[in-house]
C-alpha cells in the first residue's frame, strides 16, 4: 500500500499534466468563443511544460549552477537541466503563437463585432452569397 502511494506521489504531476492537456485540447477544439479557445491553447501548452519539468526534477537536488568554479563538480547534486531548457523554448513558441491568435481575433472582432466563431462563420457564409 505504502509502495503504491509512493509511486502515485511520483507520478501525479504527470497525471495532472495529461488531464490538463485534455482540458486544453477540448477547449481549443470545441469552445465557440475565440478567447476561450486561446485560453485552451495556453492550458494545453502549459500542461506539456509541467509534464516536461516534472521528469527533469529530481527530489532533493538543485539547479545546476556552479557557484565556485574551483570546487569539483558533483553531478549527483543537480537536477536534469535539459527539460527546463525545452520548456523555455516552448514558452517562447507559445507566446508568439498566442500573440498571433490574439491579433487575428482582434481583427475578426473589428469586422464582425462578435467573438463567437459559429456566428462569424454564418455571417461570412451570408456575405459570400
Amino acid at each position: 500500500m505504502s509502495n503504491a502511494i509512493a509511486t502515485w506521489s511520483g507520478d501525479y504531476y504527470q497525471v495532472f499534466a495529461i488531464i490538463l492537456f485534455g482540458i486544453g485540447f477540448i477547449s481549443l477544439l470545441l469552445h465557440k468563443n475565440l478567447i476561450k479557445k486561446i485560453i485552451g491553447l495556453n492550458i494545453m501548452d502549459s500542461s506539456v511544460y509541467l509534464f516536461l519539468t516534472s521528469f527533469g526534477y529530481i527530489d532533493g537536488r538543485v539547479a545546476p549552477i556552479v557557484a565556485d568554479p574551483t570546487a569539483p563538480v558533483q553531478m549527483e547534486t543537480y537536477i536534469n537541466p535539459l527539460p527546463t531548457g525545452l520548456v523555455l523554448t516552448g514558452i517562447v513558441v507559445g507566446v508568439s503563437v498566442t500573440a498571433f491568435s490574439l491579433a487575428l481575433t482582434q481583427r475578426l472582432y473589428k469586422k464582425y463585432h462578435t467573438l463567437n466563431l459559429d456566428e462569424i462563420l454564418i455571417l461570412a457564409k451570408r456575405e459570400e452569397v
Partner: peptide, 27 residues
Amino acid sequence: NNQTLVATMRYLVMSLLGSGLFLISLA
C-alpha cells in the same frame, strides 16, 4: 478581406491542435 480572416482562424485552430499533439507525443 473577411473571407481570408475567417479561413485563417479555422486554419490556425486546426494547426495549433496538430502541433499540440505533436508536442505531447514528443514529450
